[in-house]
Write a protein that binds this DNA or RNA. Structure first.
Length: 714
RNA sequence: GCCCAGGUGGCGGAAUUGGUAGACGCGCUGGCUUCAGGUGCCAGUUCCCGCAAGGGAGUGGAAGUUCGAGUCUUCUCCUGGGCACCA
């Protein structure tokens, strides 16, 4: 924290924050989901507080640009992060003001707006500021109607539904903005409910013809709707209907811009505004700095002391780390650190006078943002040990749930960059997790009754087509399958399941059922198949145990060939996280081995390979089978190298090729792997199914795709 | 509204990335084993016609590209997710 502070990556400022009334603490933007606290689920309130921030926006460009380098990440996670950071490029433009301005506003400041469509400046019909914009606030001091309007906006709320229904309304101020490119043209200035103080400059110019919100607003207040971009593929005059024209096109009604494409018109306006000294190109982000102050005991202390004389003083490094007080009372709501004077009151490290510790603690996401770096050398005296992080990082393969797509994964990416900037991580670890796998969540439906609240699956029973509480007999309200969680009690305790089938059957079953990245609704249907499989393999093991290894290489063994081939695909499937497919292949191999001839010389070795391939899925079972197969001299499987198939077994000498007529399969041929196209064609045309279709005629064309297929076109 | 995924048998899901659709498992049907149930083993199981051989249809829907489309293109309908008065 102190290093970040020195590097200018930490900020303290007053701002409007998200306040969780249940957890009684501040939340970062990322931690507000649909207007509710991510942990408590309580509707979040707005408060003005002085807070510590990590300047994640300092890396906004990098965080968005480097997403392209994350080839090992799921596309949707990259998309979600790009969406969250959301960069836009445009023009920051300052209008001169005229009119009856409140006395305490300096008219020479003008009105600064942000736009991504500078090309539409000639279609501008009005300017609007956010209700909490300084201009609006100043007006409210003398203009009662303005004050009332602002209060009304605050009341409306920011929930989705409220926004959906809210009409675009405004309050006309007694000032005008002077159009920078049209002599004598003045734009009325409004306070408008749809302009946000948090984004851009908190002020806009409105071009009704080419922005839907501006169009709605203009229609309501009878403002001019002047189209300035003629849509591509459109000739002659045209009118704006119910919808604004937001697409590309050619500029019209725009004096020196007429005839230009949108992109070059934008560049031209930015150039002229910059030259004129009233505007500049500006990049804006949706991403906000990360507020890390939390008003609670359970968190890492922020190493800052507040002194009335010296102001904000960092805790000297030699007195780090700061330990939290161990005797603490949670009887009263609020942060106990605020009440603990023995801990809170300290000497100022600079002037020695009485001062106070910062009692806010850090968001716990701070800790999870760099644990992987600390874990490389957990005993080190410094936050990280450079040789160790240099050796281990970045993390080769990261695995986590999709719910961390923005929160944890974005914070960690920021932290790695900030730690690199402050010398705690090497360049190679700027991007902490080059490869990410997002596993799915295990879901289950939920059960509740009004009297008993949430019920677990073993507290309910199904009878007569209904669902009832075992305890009370009351009818149960059944909810859709959602992620298992303790609070909703929709969890299945694994103990009973393991008791009945064994841990290895449970593992095998769970991995066999569906791809790991997919959400699954938990069901025990199908576990019998897993159980049967282990029984079957065990019988197979017993049948070959004691047979010993074959003396001579059994190259003509069908069992051995099948095992080596399975070894090849299973290895690839495991590496690609396709566990369900690997298991399907092992089921297949088991069948092949079980039906191998008694005198197959490679059968015992095939079973040994099967056991080795099963080991990652059913470790206990496999070790036991391994011992049964191998006798005392065999090393345990956990210490045995992974099976490597012999390439000699992977080559086919005889191929079965499907034969199509006009793209429809009519038969198949068996040909040597090295057969020429001509030979294959000949064999295909000799097929009865093909000659029947040809009816004595010649094929128009024969397509032979080596090792794949033959298609006869008639 | 914008941006992503995804839609395949009764179910979970495969399909070598344009080349035999439905691997493997569950379930179901029939048979063998058994006094019986279960286990185990064998056979069948996308749909329609047919005793069978065989034929026809078929990957949400419509069209297109191709010798060949679950896979590519366009439109469209549904489901899930992300973002959202972001100027």
């Amino acid at each position: 924290f102190l290093d970040f502070l020195e590097a200018g990556l930490v900020d303290r400022r007053e701002s409007t924050v998200n306040w969780d009334p249940v957890d009684r603490t501040v939340l970062a933007n990322e931690q507000v989901i649909d207007g509710k606290g991510w942990r408590s689920g309580a509707p979040v309130e707005k408060r003005q507080l002085t807070q510590w921030f990590f300047r994640i926006t300092a890396f906004a460009d990098e965080l968005i640009d480097d997403l392209d380098t994350l080839k090992g990440w799921p596309e949707r996670v990259r998309m979600m992060q790009a969406n969250w950071i959301s960069r836009s490029t445009g023009l920051k433009l300052t209008f001169e003001l005229s009119g009856a301005l409140a006395s305490h506003i300096d008219p020479s400041d003008g009105l600064t707006v942000y736009t991504t469509r500078p090309d539409t400046i000639f279609g501008a019909a009005f300017c609007a500021v956010a209700p909490d914009h300084p201009l609006a606030q100043a007006a409210a001091k003398t203009d009662e109607a303005a004050a009332a309007f602002i209060a009304e906006c605050a009341q409306l709320g920011t929930s989705e539904q409220a926004l959906e229904k809210a009409e675009k309304v405004g309050h006309r101020l007694a000032i005008d903005a002077v159009h920078p490119f049209v002599n004598g043209r003045k734009l009325p200035v409004y306070i408008a409910n749809f302009v946000l103080m948090e984004y851009g400059e908190g002020a806009i110019f409105g071009c009704p013809a080419h922005d839907q919100r501006d169009l709605d607003f203009a229609r309501k207040y009878g403002l001019e709707i002047l189209p300035v971009v003629r849509p591509s593929g459109h000739d002659g005059p045209f009118e704006i209907g119910a919808e604004a024209e937001t697409g590309d096109g050619v500029l019209v009604n725009s004096t020196f811009l007429d005839g230009m494409e949108v992109a070059s018109a934008q560049a031209e306006i930015i150039r002229r505004a910059s030259e004129g000294g009233f505007g500049e190109a500006k990049v804006n982000y949706r991403l906000r700095d990360w507020g890390v102050s939390r008003q609670r005991y359970w968190g890492c202390p922020i190493p800052i002391i507040h002194c009335d004389t010296c102001g904000i003083v960092p805790v000297p490094r030699e007195s780090l780390p700061i330990a939290l007080p161990e005797t603490v009372s949670f009887d009263t709501p609020g942060n106990p650190l605020d009440r603990d004077d023995a801990w809170r009151l300290v000497e100022c490290p600079q002037c020695g006078r009485e001062a106070r510790r910062e009692t806010d603690t850090m968001d716990t996401f701070v800790d999870s943002s760099w644990y992987y770096a600390r874990f490389c050398a957990p005993q080190a005296e410094t936050p990280t040990d450079l040789p160790s992080v240099g050796h281990w990082l970045p993390v080769d393969q990261y695995i986590g749930g999709i719910e961390h797509a923005i929160l944890h994964l974005l914070y960690s990416r920021f932290f790695a960059r900030a730690m690199h900037a402050t010398g705690h991580l090497p360049e190679e670890a700027r991007e902490p997790f080059p490869s990410l796998f997002t596993q799915g969540m295990v879901c289950h439906e939920t059960y509740r009754t009004d009297a008993e609240g949430w019920l677990s699956p073993d507290q309910i029973e199904r009878r007569d087509g209904g669902v009832y509480s075992r305890a009370s007999g009351a009818a149960v309200e059944v909810g859709p399958p959602i992620k298992m969680s303790k609070s909703k009690k929709n969890v299945v305790a694994p103990e009973e399941f393991i008791e009945q089938y064994g841990a290895d059957t449970a593992r095998w079953f769970m991995l066999s059922d569906s791809p790991p990245e997919r959400d699954v609704e938990w069901s025990e249907a199908g576990v019998e198949g897993a159980w049967r499989h282990l029984q079957r393999v065990w019988r197979l093991v017993l049948s070959v145990a004691g047979g010993g290894r074959p003396k001579a290489p059994a190259s003509d063994s069908a069992a051995l060939k099948a095992a080596h081939r399975a070894g090849h695909t299973v290895t690839e499937d495991i590496a690609g996280f396709r566990f369900n497919r690997a298991i399907a292949r092992l089921y297949e191999l088991t069948g092949q081995l079980a039906s191998a001839k008694e005198d197959d010389p490679g059968k015992a070795e095939g079973v040994r390979i099967l056991i080795r391939l099963m080991f990652p899925f059913t470790p206990h079972f496999a070790e036991e089978a391994w011992r049964k197969l191998g006798g005392k001299q065999t090393q345990i499987l956990a210490k045995t190298a992974w099976f490597e198939p012999d390439p000699a077994f992977l080559v086919e000498d005889l191929l079965t090729l499907p034969v199509q007529v006009n793209g429809k399969k009519r038969g198949e041929i068996s040909v040597p792997a090295d057969a020429s196209s001509a030979e294959i064609e000949q064999a295909a045309l000799a097929l009865e199914a093909v000659t029947k279709q040809l009816q004595g005629g010649e094929p128009r064309k024969v397509i032979v795709v080596p090792k794949r297929i033959v298609n006869v076109v008639v």
